[in-house]
Design a protein around this nucleic acid. Structure first.
Lengths: 210, 210, 210, 210
DNA sequence: TATGAATGAGGGTTCATTCAT
DNA sequence: GATGAATGAACCCTCATTCAT
């Protein structure tokens, strides 16, 4: 299943139905979980009979794979686009803000991408996992470079990556558009927290604990 | 009335089954997700026919509810027990280490408790959510107290709570017993990161970003 | 399964539970139908676990058979007792009033006896059917005797029996204790109708009809 | 668009299945009772897998409702059609003969309609009950009109309606095509009985009874 | 007698998927 | 592309019944 852009040609008419199927599946999978959503529900949401779905996706699994791979592709593309607009700011700050923004904009995609990994068949899992690792490698790279330059104090860049990503990725699970904090405030809070967490010059020593 | 030793096996056979059902469900739900696990699979794992499960749990949903509520109860009890062994150390450090240890010991319970929330029927969800909030309130309290005392610099204790909990709770998702880092090392790393993230005296100012 | 009275001895203690089981089954079968009532429901109603029912009745079918056979036995006994108090009145009138009274007093038994015949296993069905025929034979006898004596005009005593019994037996299905008609009024109405339906001297001729 | 003759078989295959499901359910419900018949049995009878039934009826209950409502509708339509062929005969006689004929022709529908009322969910029960009352109102109307005209002597037209309908409706429960009495003879017998039961000029007085 | 736990069968229903039209 | 109907497997759950205690 190829999702690279230049391969789109064979779906020239664009199949509006296919897009609506993706949309419905995205929302329903995010809301109720892949295993708990039936093809019938998706079809209902689209306004079509279940059989029609199979004109666009060969299986339910294929639908999930599409959603996850195209999310990862879009995420990577967005990051590369972001890099095209270089800012003078700290790259960690840039990454944190980018991640928060993107993940708040695509809450459903993000949620699925983290929750439904185990419902991917092994081969599909591998593909998605590869993409995910590439994304996380971006942050690891930033941390390692900053660490080498003495800007950050990071003991284990991979673990730190996981910690930061986990922290940030959870935001959409509680963020509400009309909540107490604006997106900007959340960005600021988390950016501060993250940068402090890897700040040098704070000689916290590991210590024993009972 | 009965003094023969081997008859205890009969007396307790029932509750033993219930315990084994909980155990099997716990493992299977954690591995494959609530919706993807059938009562037949659980019964097979326990070595019993599916109908027998219903002597111990009235529905599959009831089984999930039990797992989640008893996890939360055990977690709270463990924390209160921990408080009984007071240490001179920083309470944030104590909490972080406690959380990591407990969550690495109960990876399945933790995983279910975060992943299967949406599969709880509303009434059960409310109960579990109440317990979860009580637990998170512990950390929020620590942060607020430390903040007031000037030991921590925290802008929004509730958001910080969520960030820290998310960070810590993700650990069991990648930790492996024979992995690169020992539990102690992980504790140390995360404790350092968390304490730095709320450390005062680090003049990271929120800044504008496009 | 013997229900003759002198055989009661082997159930000397009377087993109050057995009686309560019969009572609960009677009500539930009448209300929801034999097939739709579970042994669990009966047990619940009695306040006992399902297994305990089998100390009193060997199967669900056995319970039904008991209810139906003992109803028929009681009905016959009541009729014979009624004959012991001879009245000067017309025997058809006597039968109609007896039937109405008895059936209004034992609505559940009657209902079951007519509705659940098909749920009896063949051998049990035969027993109950035999009893039912004996009861209907009473009315047929009355009609035949009266017919021979010229008091009634009946073309086919067996068909007339069925017609009258059907008419009377339906009463409990709509009768309500606080309804528009008293029991006495119903008795009077039906007695009049029945006696007129077999009255001689009304030369209604069978006729063609399109 | 399609003019080939043999393609009509495909077009109507679906509705044919629905009709065969109704037919099988009708026979089986009448024979064994709604609660005792499984969807699997119906499917077997139709020659289809159980799941296929749900393409035509959403639930077993829905199937029962359909059977009962369409029976009532057909009955009412048949009566109105009968009214279109006016006969010079007594309307009570007309009704009785109509009822007997229709009910002997549709023994299964009739049987179900009287036996399975209690297995209808409340909302469906209400619908069917409404139709039944409309049908009974026909007879009540005949009795009231004849009573007012002095042709019949009826004390309570509603009770008399119930009595007559019960009497007539029971016929299919014992009628056999090769039995002792022909349909015509049964019609004649019951018509005579019914008309005598409401005949005026028969001075049967209600009387006391102990 | 009553219980708790189990069984084996089967209940109604839904599932992803196929396919002729 | 979409539909209606079908399949075969599986779903959660309940059933009557048994039996050691």
């Amino acid at each position: 299943m190829d999702i690279s852009p230049d391969n789109r040609t064979h779906r020239t008419k664009g199949s509006e139905t296919a897009a609506r199927v993706r949309g419905a599946a995205l929302r329903l999978f995010a809301q109720n979980g892949y295993a708990a959503v039936s093809m019938r529900e998706i079809a209902n949401e689209v306004g079509v009979r279940p059989g029609a779905l199979y004109n666009h996706f060969s299986t339910k699994q294929d639908l999930l794979k599409h959603l996850m791979l195209s999310h990862m592709a879009a995420l990577m593309e967005a990051w590369h686009h972001q890099l095209g607009n270089p800012s003078a700011s700290d790259p960690l700050d840039t990454f944190v803000r980018f991640h928060i923004r993107y993940h708040l904009d695509r809450a459903d995609e993000v949620f699925i991408s983290y929750m439904e990994l185990r419902n991917l068949e092994p081969q599909n899992f591998k593909q998605v996992e590869t993409e995910r690792r590439k994304y996380e490698a971006i942050l690891t790279g930033i941390l390692e470079a900053g660490s080498k330059a003495g800007v950050y104090a990071v003991e284990d860049a991979k673990v730190t990556t996981r910690a930061i990503i986990a922290m940030l990725t959870a935001i959409p699970s509680w963020y509400r558009d009309n909540g107490a904090l604006s997106r900007q405030q959340i960005e600021d809070l988390y950016s501060t927290m993250v940068r402090k967490s890897v700040a040098p010059g704070l000689p916290y020593e590991p210590r024993e604990n009972g």
